[in-house]
Nucleic acid binder design. Structure first.
Lengths: 329, 329
DNA sequence: CTGAAAGCGCTTACAG
DNA sequence: CTGAAAGCGCTTACAG
C-alpha cells in the first residue's frame, strides 16, 4: 500500500540515495531531478517514515514530556509553554504518562530505555535520592520541571517560600488562627507547602496545631480538586474552634472552598496557590507560579543542551509572588 | 555508549535472535537462557529501541492525538479520557499539535505521511469536504472527536442541539431578549451554536438581532477565554437596549461574564456550555458535554478498528444535556 | 550532481 | 529451544 523510497526512486528513474537527498534539504541535487522526484512523491503522497529515519540517523527529532497525570490545570499550562517553545523549533512532542506511586521509577526507567526521544522534560516527577542518582546514570538530556536535583537542569518554583508568603500575608492581616487546606500529605508539593506554612507560623510565634491542617477525603488527582477543597472547607467551618483564615494548597481547591463558604453562609479569608487564569475572575488572592514560563524556559534549556552537551547545568528557581485580590478581604 | 542487542547477545553467549525472543514474550526460550539474557540486559540497562522495533515490525504501537491547541479545558478533559482508556491497553500516546488556519490540512497531511502511529485521534480538527475526502484516501485508522464526517468513526456532540436547548431554556423562563455571548465567528463550534441559538429564537417567534451576538476583541484560543467573556459581557451591559438574558458559548467565557456582571453590579441570567468541573462550584447553569467520555469512547472505537479493520463505521453523537444551576435564577 | 553499498537495531520465518 | 540470514525503510560516507 504505502510507498517507500524504492518505489519513488524507480518511478522517478533515480537511485534511492537521490530520493533521500531530495527529502533532506542539506545535500545537493540538481533542480531538474529534485522536481522530478518531488512530482512522483507528491503523486503517491510519499514522505520518509519517521521510524526508518530515526533508525538510520540514530536520532528521532522528538522531545518527550514525562507527566504523572494529564488532566490537571498545572500540567496544562506547563504543556502550553512547552508547545510555545517547540513550535518555534523542529521538534515533535511526545507525551508519556506515568502513574505516580509504587512503580513510578520503573515506568520512568522503561521509557528512557526505549530511547524514544532525544531529550526529556520531566514534569512534576518527584523521585528519591536513590532514584535520581540512577536516573543520572542514564546520561540522557533531561530537564526537570517543578522539581530540582543536583546534576540536572531544572526549572522550579520555591514551594516553601510560596506557602510561607501566603500564610504570612494572612498573619500580617491580623489573623492568628490560620489553617492550611491541604491535599494528599505524601505529595511533594504538599510536603513543601506544609513546611512553608509552619515556617510562617513559627516566625510569628504561633503554635502549630495539626488539627488546622485539613484535607478532603477523596484523593483523586492527589486531592487537588474542587471537590477536595469543598470537603475540607466544609469540615473547617464545622469545627468547634474554627480558624479565622485559611491558606489553600491550590487554586482549584480554593474554588471548592469558596463554594463551601457560600453554601454555609460563613466566610473566612483565603489565599490560594498557582494563580490559574480563573483566579483573577473569581477574585482569589493567590500565589503566582509562572507555569507557562516554566514550560517554555525548561524547553529552551533542554534544546540548548541538545545542541551543546557540555553546557553548564542550570537550576532556575522562580520566586513565587503573592497576588492580592478580594478573597482576603 | 548505549548497548544493542548485539552486545547483549555476545555477553550472554547467545544469538541476537534469542535475545530478541526474550524481549518478545511470545516465543519459546528455555528458562535458563532467558534468565541469563535478562541478567546481562539488566546489568547494562538494555531494552529494545522503539525505533528499531517499529521498523522491523512495521508497526509502532503508538496512537497519535492530533490537537489544535493544547491548553484548553476541553482538550484537557478529552485527553484525560483518552489516557484512561489507553492506560488499560499497551499503546503509547503521542500528541501532535497543529495550528488551526491556513496550513491546518498541510500539517495534518504531513504527520499522516510520516506514519508515526498506527491509529489517529483527531480532536476538534475541522476540515472542509475536499479535505476530508483527501483524508479518507490515506486509508488510515482515524477517529474523529468533536467532529463527524461520513466514512469516519466519530464521537461528537450535537452543538446545534446544545445551543438550542440553552437558548430555549432562557426563553422558556420568560425572557424575550436573549443574547449570545460568542467567540471567533469562523470557528466551527461557534457556527453550529449560532445555528442552534437562532433556531430557538425562530421557534419562539423572536426576531434575530445581529447586535445581540457579541464577542470579545481578543481571539486568543479562538476567543474561548475568561477574558473574551469578560469583554463581551462588559459590552453587553453597556448596550442601549441590553438583553435580558444571555447564552454563553463556553463555560470559561461565562466565568468572565460573571465577573463583568459582578463588577458592574448588573446581573442577567446566563447559561454556559461544556460543564467544566468548575461550573458546579460557581453555580453556572450550562450544557453538559461528556468530554471525558468522548475521549474514552473514541479511543475504544479506534482500538477496535485497529484490531478489526473491517468493523462497521460508527458515528456516535452525544446529546447535550442542560444542567440548571443558580446562574439562571 | 549521482549511484552502489554498508549500516542503523531490531524481528521473524526457516531450518535444525 | 536456538541460530543464520533476510528484511524493515531510511541515511550517508565513499567514489566517480
Amino acid at each position: 500500500m504505502a510507498s517507500t523510497i524504492y518505489d519513488i526512486a524507480e518511478k522517478a528513474g533515480v537511485s534511492i540515495a537521490t530520493v533521500s537527498r531530495v527529502f533532506n534539504q542539506s545535500s545537493s541535487v540538481s533542480e531538474a531531478t529534485r522536481r522530478k522526484v518531488l512530482r512522483v512523491a507528491d503523486a503517491v503522497g510519499y514522505h520518509p517514515q519517521a521510524y526508518a529515519q530515526g533508525l538510520a540517523r540514530s536520532k528521532s527529532n522528538t522531545i518527550m514530556a514525562v507527566v504523572p497525570v494529564i488532566s490537571n490545570y498545572f500540567f496544562m499550562e506547563v504543556l502550553g509553554g512547552i508547545q510555545d517553545k517547540l513550535s518555534e523549533q523542529g521538534y515533535e512532542l511526545t507525551i508519556f504518562n506515568v502513574t505516580a506511586g509504587e512503580n513510578l521509577f520503573k515506568e520512568v526507567e522503561h521509557v528512557l530505555k526505549r530511547r524514544w526521544a532525544e531529550g526529556y522534560l520531566f514534569i512534576s516527577i518527584h523521585l528519591n535520592d536513590d532514584q535520581f542518582l540512577k536516573l543520572k546514570r542514564f546520561n540522557l538530556p533531561i530537564t526537570l520541571i517543578d522539581e530540582h536535583y543536583e546534576g540536572f537542569d531544572s526549572v522550579s518554583v520555591d514551594n516553601i517560600q510560596g506557602a510561607y508568603r501566603a500564610t504570612k500575608s494572612l498573619i500580617d492581616s491580623g489573623y492568628k488562627k490560620v489553617a492550611m487546606l491541604s491535599a494528599l500529605s505524601s505529595s511533594k508539593p504538599i510536603r513543601d507547602r506544609l513546611v512553608g506554612y509552619r515556617k510562617a507560623l513559627d516566625e510569628s510565634g504561633i503554635e502549630f496545631d495539626p488539627n488546622y491542617v485539613i484535607s478532603g477525603t477523596s484523593f483523586y488527582r492527589d486531592g487537588f480538586t474542587e471537590k477536595g477543597g469543598f470537603e475540607a472547607m466544609k469540615h473547617i467551618l464545622a469545627m468547634d474552634n474554627p480558624p479565622e483564615a485559611c491558606f489553600c494548597a491550590s487554586d482549584i481547591q480554593a474554588v471548592g472552598a469558596l463554594k463551601a463558604m457560600k453554601d454555609s453562609g460563613k466566610r473566612i479569608p483565603i489565599v490560594g496557590y498557582d494563580d490559574i487564569e480563573l483566579a483573577e475572575y473569581i477574585g482569589l488572592s493567590t500565589i503566582r507560579q509562572p507555569m507557562r514560563d516554566m514550560g517554555y524556559f525548561a524547553t529552551q534549556s533542554l534544546i540548548e543542551r541538545l545542541n551543546n552537551a557540555n553546557k553548564a547545568i542550570s537550576q532556575t528557581i522562580y520566586s513565587p509572588e503573592l497576588i492580592q485580590r478580594t478573597s482576603t478581604f
